[in-house]
Structures are given as C-alpha cells and as structure tokens.
Design a binder for these strands. Structure first.
Lengths: 211, 211
DNA sequence: TGTACATCAGTGAACGCGCGTTCACTGATGTAC
DNA sequence: TGTACATCAGTGAACGCGCGTTCACTGATGTAC
C-alpha cells in the first residue's frame, strides 16, 4: 500500500495530484488559465512528466470531467437517500445536491459543461453524464407516480428541473448573481423547494380539473 | 453618410467589423479560440489595426458583452410587447426571448456570462445586465398582481425564472442537451410555458388555501 | 538472499508556434483660411 | 476653389513570452530465477 510517497524520484501518486492541482487552478482562475507547464511546476515535477499520465491536455480535462460526473452522481444519490421518503423531498434533495456540487466543485463543474460538441465523442464521458441525468429522470417519475408532479410525458418536466438547477449553479459559479443583494446559499434551497411546490400545485390542479 | 467604404486605405467601419467577426469566431469555435491577430487577418487588416479601436482584448470582449445585453434587452421588450396583454403570457414571452437570444447569438451569450468576477468591475456592463434583469423582475411582479404567481417577496420567483431560462439556454448553447432525443426548439416553449403554468397553479392553490 | 534485467516514471533541454502588444511610419481624410 | 496642416486610421516589422509537446536520457522499482 503506497498511497503517499512524496519524496524521492518517483512521485507515487502524480496522476491524482495533477488532477487535484488542475481543479484548484480552474476553481480559482478558470479553465483558460490552466497550462500543463504551470501545472507541472505547481505539482513539483518537470514539464514532461504529465505526459506519462495523460496523452495530452484534452485527456486531462476529460479525466477531470469524468471524475466530476462520478462525484456529482454520488452526491445526488447520497442526499436523495438521506431525504424523507417523499417524492417531492427526494427531488428537492437531488436539486440541492446538484447546485451544491457545482458550488463546492466549480473547477469540475466548468470542465464538465464546457462547450462539448467535440467532447461528446468521448463515450465514457457521455455515459457518466447520462447516468447522472437518469437519477433526475427517475425521481421526476417518482413524483408523477406520487401525484407530486403533473402526469404525462416527463421529458419537459425533467428538462425544466435540470435547467433550473443548472442555471442557478451556472449563474452562481460564474459570479452573475448580485451577491450584495442576495445570498446564493439561502437562495438555492428556496429555489429547489419552489420547484417541488410548483410541480405539486400543478399536479393537484390538474387532477382537480379532470372531470 | 459613409457606412460602407470597404476598399481603400481606410476601412470605414472596422470597429463593428471586428466585433462581428469576433462574434462569429466565438459562435463557431468558442471564446478561447478568439485571437486578436487571427481576427485582424480575418477582417483583412494588419495585426496592429484593432488597437486603434480597442485598448486590448478585454476591451473588445467588454464591448461585445455590452452590445449583447442591449440586444437581449431589446429582444425581451419586443417579444413581451407583442404578447397578449396577460401577465403569464408576457412572462412566457420574455423567457422565450431569453432562450432564443442565447441560441441565435451564442457568441454574445458566452461573452456576456463568462466568469465575470473581474468583469464585474465594469460599471457600464453591470448596468446593462441589471437593466435586462429588471425586465424580468417587472413581469414577475405583474404576474403577482394578476394572481398568476404566488404573492410575497418576488426575489425567489425572479431568480428561479432566471435560472430556468438561463439553464436551458446554457445547456443548449453548450451542446449538453441530447439533441438526438429531444428537439431544443420544441422544448424551449414548453419549458417557459410550464413555468408560467406552475406559477399560476401555485398562486391559485395558495389563495384557495387561505382562510 | 542476491543478481540480472525489464519496465515504469521521472528529468530537462529543445522544438516550433501563435499570441498580445508596441512602435515608428505613412496614406487618407477633414478643416481653417 | 485651393492650399496648409492637423488628425485619423491604417501598415508591417519586431519584441518577448509562455505554451504544448517531443525526446533521449536516467534513476527507481518490481520480478524471475
């Protein structure tokens, strides 16, 4: 078992260190500020060393994105399972996990959702993102079964829910929310709670209106 | 009146041409692909010429963002005013204008919302973005007055609405929507329509539940 | 336990490149008289 | 209408820089016998 072997010629865990430092740089300075050379220097290693672990810069970014989707999925599952056994509360939990993940892992989040017309060709990556998406899909269907969301094709509901949490996360991470007037940490639970309340209200109204 | 004077030593309208070409490059290849040198070449001008119109790269980007917020504001106003005189429909129109703007002006959109912790120091820019934000705020308040949205502090409603359309726009522009399974052009009106219906349903429920 | 050897994971110099920006210059345009 | 001159908006060469990536190399590690 040799997880930490920092001194000496061989680093011991350079791959994960490079990922960690990258994420940290992106957190603080954005994706465009990430250079492999500066990265190697920060990791205390020569400029050629990263190429023993990643074929190129894109490979590093894809690895970060993949790890991000896994972390996101885990966060959503664990918060969902810790929620009261109520469909609306579970949806709420997943939404909060999403926003919370973005804010606590802005580096991962940015890399995961950078313009990915080219990255869509990475099968492992799109599989990981679809898996996270399915968690949201499933809980929306739970809501429908429980009468906490309007019946019918869930697609619009799912994409609306995703858009809501993704938008809030993006605005927050990109610093677009006027933090002087609003506290995002307070806002986020209110927003996700509003969503489940609105879905429930619409479901109730539709059932009541049905002859 | 000399708007077009393309041939000859003086370009005639180089500033706007540089903006247009920039937006086009960003549309197609993303912000990080924009280089002032390549830009100058594409505009048919030497590499130093842009510096007679912009102090540096950031100044160019700030100008694009500013223009973007103006275009967005105009689009929202004109669609809102073309909508039926019904608060829900007007909210719907503003939301659709937002998403539609992002999709038809992805270059502007990306620059407007790139991580702006530093760009927040540009007063003209934040004023322009606040003006667009106020349009959304006003229409949400209209909805509240018309009983088409729950009463109380509008902040959560406004930020939720903004998050919803911003998230949808972002996911679309960044190519994150699985276009094989869903047509964003069909999805967008459904999503904004769902929002106004949900707000109205929640308002109705709350009024009915009040003793 | 010791030795030979393959493999792994570093080094560090070097490459070519495109970038943002500067600067002395010059051609074109507008204006005052 | 013509001339002198200031100003504007280009040119194009040059700068220094940091980047991604390659490559021959070497030290460290693991394994077979």
């Amino acid at each position: 078992m040799r997880i930490q072997k920092k001194s000496g010629y061989h680093h011991g865990d350079l791959k994960q260190t490079l990922i960690d430092v990258s994420v940290d740089v992106i957190n603080r300075a954005g994706l465009e500020a990430l250079s492999l050379r500066a990265l190697a220097t920060q990791a205390g290693v020569s400029s050629g060393a990263p190429y023993h672990h990643f074929t190129d810069r894109n490979d590093l970014l894809a690895t970060i994105a993949l790890q991000g989707f896994e972390l996101l999925g885990q966060a959503m599952v664990s918060r969902r399972d810790a929620a009261p056994p109520d469909a609306g509360a579970r949806l709420d939990a997943i939404g909060q996990a999403y926003v919370n993940f973005a804010v606590t892992h802005p580096g991962h989040f940015r890399v995961m959702f950078r313009d990915n017309s080219p990255a869509a060709r990475n099968p492992a990556l799109s599989a990981a993102s679809q898996q996270a998406f399915r968690l949201l899909f499933a809980v929306i269907e739970e809501c429908q079964r429980a009468g906490a969301a309007p019946a019918g094709n869930p697609a619009t509901l799912v994409y609306s829910a995703w858009s809501l949490v993704h938008g809030l996360a993006t605005l927050w991470v990109d610093g677009a929310l006027p933090t002087a007037r609003v506290d995002p940490a307070t806002l986020a639970p209110e927003v996700t709670r509003l969503l489940s309340r609105m879905l429930a209200a619409l479901a109730t109204q539709e059932v009541a209106g049905r002859p």
